[in-house]
Simulated scan of single mutants.
Amino acid sequence: MKKKVLAVLLSGCMVAGMIAGCGSKGGEDKKADDSAAKTETEDKGDEAKGGDYHFEVVVKSFQSSYWQAAVQGIKQAEEELGVTANTTGPNAESDIADQVNMLNNAINKAPDGIALAACDQNSVLDSLQTALDKKIPVVCFDSGVPDAPEGSVYATVVTNNGAAGAIAADKIYEAVKDKIAKADKQVRVGEVNQDATSANITERGLGFVNRFIELAKADGKTVAVTGNDYYVGKVEDKGDAKSADIVIEIAVPAQTTVELCSTEAANIMNKEDTIAIFGSNQVSAEGVLTANQNLSVLGSDPEKNIIAAGFDAGSTIKAAVKDGTLLGAVTQSPLMQGKLSIETLTKICNGEEVSDIETDGYWYDATNMEDPDISPNLYD
């Protein structure tokens, strides 16, 4: 997938904020500090353009190794740019209120900028307004905030999640299309999403569903979508579950844990008509694999097994891809997202224009895990 950069024009208030300097630190003292920092930066050459900027970073949690990889990218940017960053996050991605409190605490520290991976795209709106009022630039990464107050989010660094979900649908459909074609009764495809609140998970989950529907209809099959009300409500053609050739069942646990994702996955995998299942991030994919420890139904033969695909990486998912329990998975580049977020904040503080950035997603399976374009993104 080619990287796409979506041009975004900064609003007048953004430009004014950048001219005045990052954060809410105004006045002559700030000007003097900026002048000194600029001199020091120039002495270090073009590669060190961070001045003495300090950023606060709020991630979704440290629950999965995905976020540890993002922190590695943040640290790389700190070293390369001469900036500092403090990273915090709640215990779990379902701890939405805790993350909002952390974001508010970050704003109260009056940093030069904030990088945010929002657990819930709607719960951070008031906080983003406060950051805007205090002239603290915010860069979102991993997950956008579509309804953010105008001018509060300067750029978003994110995977094209709809397209990434569609990649998983392409691969699963290719594996099971013959079984669907020969079926003399209804078949079921499952999807486990860890939540129905964050933009990246919902876009990814819907990307899978919409592409699977598209592929099935092209082969003359009818599809119905059932399960979680939020996702079902976002699908244009929900179909008729009683008469459809294929039912796509979408499950979301009450909280974001591997154990609860496992319960949801087991409920789907236990049904006799289930032929495939998709776990749309690391936590939910590990939940699918945990459910399989008791059921032993996943594998690479669509005539005998349920075909499964995951998302992200981590040692559990990688091992399942290697041994054929999973057909494969789609990986992102969390390290690069973390790094690009800090680089973008630094550009804002230097008065440069910035734009949204889409990072690449890759399909990997047992045949290509060692490829140079893939292996750097397969974190443990």
Rank of each mutant, 00 (worst) to 15 (best):
G287M: 07
E272T: 15
Y53A: 10
A69C: 05
L326E: 01
A309C: 02
T159F: 00
V247D: 00
A181G: 08
N200E: 05
S375N: 06
P146W: 13
T256P: 07
T84A: 14
W363M: 00
E40F: 13
I74N: 01
K217T: 12
S280C: 11
V153H: 06
S24T: 15
A164E: 00
G151L: 09
N160T: 05
A244R: 05
N122W: 12
I306H: 00
K182F: 05
Y53Q: 12
T331A: 04
E286I: 12
E174T: 08
I307T: 07
Q68P: 14
D133N: 09
S152L: 00
V139R: 05
M14Y: 11
A309T: 02
D95A: 10
T346Q: 01
E303S: 14
A155S: 08
Y231Q: 12
S300D: 11
G310R: 09
D126H: 11
I250A: 14
T226V: 10
S243E: 02
G227P: 02
C261K: 08
D98A: 10
T331G: 03
M1L: 06
L128S: 00
V187F: 08
E259A: 10
A366E: 02
S65T: 13
L289Y: 11
E56S: 06
C22F: 10
L378M: 00
F212E: 08
D240V: 08
E249D: 12
C22V: 09
V15W: 15
T39K: 15
T84M: 14
D178H: 12
G162R: 13
D142Y: 06
G239W: 11
L378K: 02
R188N: 06
A241S: 09
G82A: 02
D323Q: 02
F278C: 02
D323P: 00
S61V: 05
K238E: 07
V192Q: 06
V158P: 04
F311K: 09
T130P: 13
A251P: 15
V158D: 05
N200D: 06
D34T: 12
V153W: 04
C261I: 09
S284C: 07
E47T: 14
F62N: 05
D52V: 07
S300R: 13
D29A: 08
N305W: 05
D178L: 15
G113W: 09
D380Y: 06
D178R: 15
A169Y: 03
L206S: 07
I201G: 01
G361T: 13
G310K: 11
A276V: 04
F278A: 05
G162T: 10
G151M: 13
G151Y: 04
E40L: 10
K182W: 03
G351S: 03
K182I: 06
V330L: 01
V83P: 08
F311R: 12
I275H: 04
A168Y: 00
A32T: 07
P372T: 15
N377Q: 08
I357G: 03
L289M: 12
Y66V: 13
G220F: 12
W363P: 00
E236L: 15
